[in-house]
Design a protein around this nucleic acid. Structure first.
Lengths: 347, 347
DNA sequence: ATGAAAGCGCTAACAC
DNA sequence: GTGTTAGCGCTTTCAT
């Protein structure tokens, strides 16, 4: 328990009575080692508990086999599921993950995070911080200020940058259409914070669906939340008073929708009869809300997987000095209809 | 955008017309550099966009300033909040985080994860995988097979190992006591999977509370879930039929409690009048369930923070060859009483 | 099939 | 206050 210094390749070589190159060959599965020598060296490695140093290897090979992941808001459900996908896929593809979490959603603190990653010589970067306000402006201006392959999650299309995201606009439009199909004449909307790119997309989708159904969109028909159940509660109370004729509502995420359900119970609003409700995200609990919540399932695990795959492709092309066209990958979602929006069957 | 190779200390030295040693001094804020030289070098560093290589530095210093974090089930709320705390604190204390997620809760796949960390020469390890079945046996037998300071989260006290955890036993006992105080005569329990250490602790706490109130504990009074709302639903239906006189229930986590609430609604069981319900974890949404859920708040963010602090202490002592007594840190929880358990006020 | 030498980018130890 | 030398643990190139 006390031999602090770890075993090195030289010690293995001495113990085995060979040169360190031969040991190195065994480590890297090179063919040109006598079977007998190989077995002997493997035995010594095992006996000494030798583990080659990734640090030394990274230095000489000029590649760390590590990807840097920058995230924010890990205490939220979405980002952590994405991270889940990233770690799984990275491991599968032979990469380690260096994780950085920004203290907020990335206003002003980008440079230190980036410096840490550059310093560690990561082979590629996944920028898993959603686009909020101007927090991505840095990259739009300075793309190429660092020359590490980088992929961005959940941001709008931007020249020269590769992105991965779900189809927010389309999904929002579809779920709003579903509410209209259920016979809702007045479909309200609770948004997330307006400076989020996703939020703008979802709101635009809601507007498009109404517009397609020849309905007007006015200011009193929507309200702004902050993702939490509490903020959903507040936003909903606001709508109840300013848009009383509302008989359907598309809520920007499931947590806020839960806040809506609670206010409805307290106020004697019957769901879905008086008000059809749909959420967004598809968190597992939503099927157990009361009533079970209609929502849009976005596969955030898959989002993580796909981004790793694309990034590794970028890394490889970069190494071989091949030019690679920036890619914009869009993942589909799936509406899951549950009781909270089923007006028609209740008639 | 195309100069692939990154700038090195030698290039900075040449450009500045000094030796690399002087540049190194500036990088490490050594006092013995002429102010003028320092400014000049800093200007060159800035101009060239030089970032020192953590890889080379790690190699020579024999320390990586990186901690390895091993986790599992990131798609659950608890582990990701803990990770949140870990990243925050690690960054604050000048450490980077290398993240590994086990595919399951750690049966059989421990060695590769450990190898990855050793290979990367992390300075310390946070084993944030809860103790389940025999998944920690490896460490109990082979402690010291690797000589990296390691701290374990959410596992029972074990000789020679440092641990951090919340007081599961006490919390469970307290919340069960609360249900009894509310006048419940028959308090049931839904556990998580029985091979989890936490689950055993919580069950024992529930039993102790009943025992203190001179109630008998029999097999028909409890049922086993798997953490999900769906499994809570199943377990509760089982209890309804095998323990019909039940008028209170302590559920092993909030998600399963949500499943209980749904079944109650469907079956016309009135909460809390017919049945008082308490959960465990204190996820933010629990205050918006219907009715709002009484639960035990465990601060998993704090759990992460504390573990980093303790680990850094261990790392420092280890470096200085000081012996450090293995530490077992226990964090307190807080019961938050909401409508779901307030029988007395309804009388 | 194996070994010797060089060097990745940096810092520690010692000159001057 | 600054430069020189050596070396961290490994892989690459070139001999043998």
């Amino acid at each position: 328990m006390n031999n602090k210094k770890s075993v090195t390749i030289v010690q293995v070589a001495e113990e085995a009575g060979v040169s360190k190159q031969t040991v190195s060959r065994v480590l890297n599965d090179r063919p040109d080692v006598a079977p007998e020598t190989r077995r002997h060296i493997e035995e010594v490695i095992e006996r000494l508990g030798y583990r080659p140093s990734a640090v030394a290897r990274s230095l000489i090979q000029q590649r760390s086999s590590t990807i840097g992941v920058v995230t924010a808001g890990l205490n939220f459900v979405g980002p952590s599921r994405t991270l889940n996908g990233i770690t799984n896929k990275a491991e599968e593809m032979g990469y380690s993950v260096l994780l950085i979490e920004l203290p907020d959603f990335g206003f002003g603190d980008i440079r230190p995070a980036l410096d840490t990653l550059i310093t560690h010589r990561v082979d590629g970067i996944i920028w898993a911080v959603p686009e909020v306000g101007e927090n991505h402006a840095f990259f739009q201006e300075e793309h190429g200020s660092h020359n590490i392959p980088t992929i961005f999650l959940t941001m709008g299309d931007t020249p020269h940058l590769s992105t991965v995201k779900i189809n927010n606009y389309h999904s929002a439009k579809e779920v709003t259409g579903h509410l209209i199909d259920q016979g809702c004449l007045h479909v309200a909307h609770i948004t997330g914070p307006l400076d989020w790119w996703e939020v703008q997309e979802r709101k635009a989708g809601w507007e498009a669906a109404l517009s397609d159904a020849s309905r007007k969109v006015t200011e009193d028909m929507w309200s702004v939340g902050k993702w939490s159940s509490r903020s959903g509660e507040t936003a909903f109370r606001e709508l109840v008073s300013k848009y009383p004729q509302m008989d359907g509502i598309f809520v920007g995420n499931d947590q806020m929708a839960l806040g809506v359900l609670q206010v409805a119970h307290q106020s004697g609003i019957c769901i879905p009869k008086d008000l059809a409700v749909a959420g967004f995200d598809g968190i597992p609990e939503s099927g157990y809300y009361w009533p079970p919540l209609t929502t849009v399932i976005q596969d955030q695990h898959e989002l993580g997987c796909v981004s790793v795959q694309e990034l590794v492709g970028m890394i490889n092309d970069y190494r071989e000095e091949k030019f690679r066209e920036p890619n914009s990958i869009i993942l589909d979602t799936r509406i899951i209809v549950r009781e909270s929006s089923l007006k028609s069957t209740n008639h």
